[in-house]
Design a protein around this nucleic acid. Structure first.
Lengths: 190, 190
DNA sequence: CAGCTTGGCTAGCGGTGCTAGAATTCGGGT
DNA sequence: ACCCGAATTCTAGCACCGCTAGCCAAGCTG
């Protein structure tokens, strides 16, 4: 019994090691550097060990993504609750979202651009995902007017996401970022 | 002289064959299917021939992307010029943009998601890119108010791009698409 | 028609995600 | 204390990727 639980604990620790190592490697050298060979070397096990924990590389990325959503949800929540009124809350959340994407680009890409096999806009979505989206819902709620609340939150989110991905991939001039963010927030503050 | 020109013409034709084959293959089976081996087989030449025309696979994708921007620019222009007033023009261009992304997802991804080595928001950008962005500029011009025109066009574009990528990657519920598009256009019509 | 130049091809390099089967470790029974 | 069986890890390899060196043949030039 005790041996069994110890083994399970060690397995769980190793699984966490895989996920955090994958995230750190991606954040420091980009997802291209996260190969199964490289990841195996970093955790000091052989490749097949990864497959005893995860179905494949995509499943490892999915685990990293869930971690990322938990972090993002916390940061958005902090920004929202610290703001004195709904309009400033919207601006604060928008800025926090942009800062997150800028500070952790590899993580952001895994969360929002790479194909990752996770349920998103469904009841089966992981709690961390729902928490992050919940923050967006709450921040637009006081400003919704006649608009459908989920659709409005999704649209605001899309605006932020578009700004960040297009800028980060070189499609938008960096120097106008603040101007664009202000325009977006202004259009959703009315 | 004549032999020289015939050879150049044949070379140019083969280059076009490579680009259109790459595009068709991507549109029918996705970019994952566009490998240099597969593409070489489709055009009925050996792999190294591709490298006598393009520096690498990325350069082939870049050529496809330029084609895509020309198509998109034409469609956006048609939508804009057919509309009777600025507000309806904005809605028409937004709908045309969304339709393009839905109808040609692989092409859209190459244009806006994949990393391609092309100058975008600079004077050196290919004319087709400038034409497409120019349509967005013109359609928001009458509605700009005090906002900076390029920044406003970029922000509207970001909204459309975010809507399409997040929906197509399964992050947004498909059934609310029209609602979200209406909200976005509404927020930029005022 | 011979020689040379141009151009496409075969074959191969180092890398990828993933897996079958050998080898090793380790707990449990005698 | 020892050895056996089961669980787990590792070695080695598959099929594929983008890309390239070097051979070989076709075709123009004198």
């Amino acid at each position: 019994m005790s041996i069994q639980t110890r083994r399970e604990r060690e397995r769980a620790e190793r699984e966490r090691l895989i996920v955090t190592t994958a995230r750190e490697l991606a954040e420091s050298e980009g997802w291209d550097a996260v190969t199964t060979r490289r990841l195996a070397a970093e955790i000091e096990y052989s490749q097949p060990v990864l497959y005893s924990h995860f179905k494949g590389k995509d499943a490892i990325m999915a685990a990293v993504v869930v971690e990322g959503f938990a972090d993002m949800a916390a940061e958005l929540r902090a920004a929202r609750t610290a703001a004195p009124d709904p309009r400033q809350a919207l601006a604060a959340v928008g800025a926090a979202y942009a800062a997150f994407a800028e500070r952790r680009p590899a993580l952001y890409d895994a969360m929002f651009t790479h194909a990752v096999d996770l349920p998103f806009a469904t009841p089966e979505a992981p709690p961390a995902l729902k928490a992050a989206f919940g923050e967006l819902l709450e921040v637009v709620r006081p400003l919704a007017g006649d608009d459908d609340l989920p659709a409005l939150a999704e649209t605001f989110w899309s605006g932020l996401h578009g700004l960040m991905t297009l800028m980060r991939s070189g499609r938008l001039r960096r120097e106008d970022h603040d101007k664009r963010l202000a325009i977006l927030i202004g259009r959703f503050s009315g």
